[in-house]
Amino acid sequence: MTREVVSHRDGHVYEFGPEMDPVYEAADGESLTIETVDSLNGEIREEGDLLDAIPEEVNAATGPIAVAGASPGDVLAVEIEDVRVAEDRGRVLTAPGFGLLQDDPDIDHPATRITEVEGGGADGSGGDAAGTIDFEGIDVPIEPVIGTIGVATDEETVSTLTPDDHGGNLDTTDVTGGTTVYFPVFQSGAMLAMGDAKAAMADGEMCGTGAEIATEIDVTLSVIEDPAVSPDRPLLDTGDAVKTLASAETMEEAVELANGDMLDLLTHHHGFSRTEAYLFSSLVGGLEISQVVDPQVTARNAVPSDHLSLPF
């Protein structure tokens, strides 16, 4: 079955807001291929290309894509089937005033390293395996991540550089092939957009970037009506674990939100009181850092699928 392709050339956004005009309307249950450009729109091609400041328009997110039937109060399920790199190089870099160690005098700001793709087909070899990227002669496995993915917001307009309850710049390594991401729907059609992908990225995204790269992403979009538990923020099902995602100004706030959201799921699944869910989360849950460099930080709380399934 041929998939419709939605490309960044068809349309992309630099903000998620309550009023968004779709570039495509998908049917409930439709499978698509989404083409994304790297977070810097191809401006960084060589190691001599430096980023003197974070651009006003960054992290172009392909879309928005309206999903027929999605209404406020529903949940949008985004099943990520595959993420493929679509160019022969990535780029990892620093910029002044950005990143975890932005004030370290021994680290160059700005700095750029081009990460050439080896194997995996994007370099023209025609291989099926994911391949590697080269960093200073070291092979790093390609494990693609979608950095920015989200839906129309409830009220505020939010830059694609910033994560929040609608998703956005979550920079979470689990947002990759094999994971289903669930978003609360705030506006009719949901208005999904995504981009800012990386060929490889560590939890934390310490320098402020992964290996930024263009990608092709296969997804299936489904609307869940009348969910038994209505999420306030994105949720992940990796197949091995259920994970709550939360973004806030501080890591303490983010992990409190992520843990609180997990308690909602545990009380529903097990019939626990909230106290029992809190105690149980401290036995089987695991707090994880997604990123520490964006205008808000993002954390997740993971519970193995043996102990929890999502109520939709």
Rank of each mutant, 00 (worst) to 15 (best):
A202D: 15
L93I: 11
G97M: 15
A246Q: 04
G73L: 09
D306Y: 01
L170E: 00
T94K: 02
M20R: 10
P304Q: 11
A60F: 02
I224Y: 01
F98G: 02
D294W: 01
D82L: 07
P184I: 09
T220S: 06
L245H: 00
N301W: 07
S188N: 13
G195H: 07
A277F: 00
I107C: 09
G99K: 12
G97K: 14
E19G: 02
A193G: 08
T33R: 14
R89F: 15
L265C: 07
G204I: 02
G285P: 07
S247W: 01
V151Q: 11
P163Y: 06
A228C: 04
H307N: 12
V175N: 00
R274H: 04
E118C: 03
L310T: 04
E56H: 05
G285A: 14
G208A: 10
L310D: 00
S125I: 03
S247A: 15
E256L: 13
E212Q: 14
T153Y: 05
I142E: 00
D174Q: 15
V255T: 13
S7D: 02
L236Q: 04
H307I: 04
T172G: 09
E143T: 13
F98P: 03
T180C: 07
E35T: 11
V293I: 10
Q187M: 04
P105R: 10
I146D: 01
V284I: 05
P105K: 08
G167V: 11
L310R: 02
M191H: 15
E212R: 06
L161S: 12
E216M: 07
T36N: 06
P234R: 02
E87L: 02
R91F: 13
G73E: 08
D232R: 08
Q102C: 06
F16G: 12
D261P: 01
P141H: 04
A61C: 12
P231I: 03
V23S: 01
D106F: 14
E57S: 09
A200F: 15
N259K: 14
V58P: 00
V145N: 02
V297Y: 01
T157D: 13
T148C: 11
M206L: 15
M206W: 15
G127F: 01
P304S: 11
N259S: 14
V303L: 08
S31K: 12
D128G: 12
A241L: 06
G69K: 10
E56R: 06
I138V: 13
Q296W: 06
D106G: 12
R91V: 15
E118H: 12
T209W: 00
T36G: 07
G147E: 05
T132N: 08
P110C: 09
S188F: 09
P231H: 12
M191S: 10
L192S: 05
N169D: 14
H268L: 05
D82E: 15
V37D: 07
T62P: 00
T160V: 05
I149W: 02
G90E: 04
L283C: 08
E216H: 10
S273H: 00
T176Q: 04
V223W: 03
A302K: 05
G131K: 03
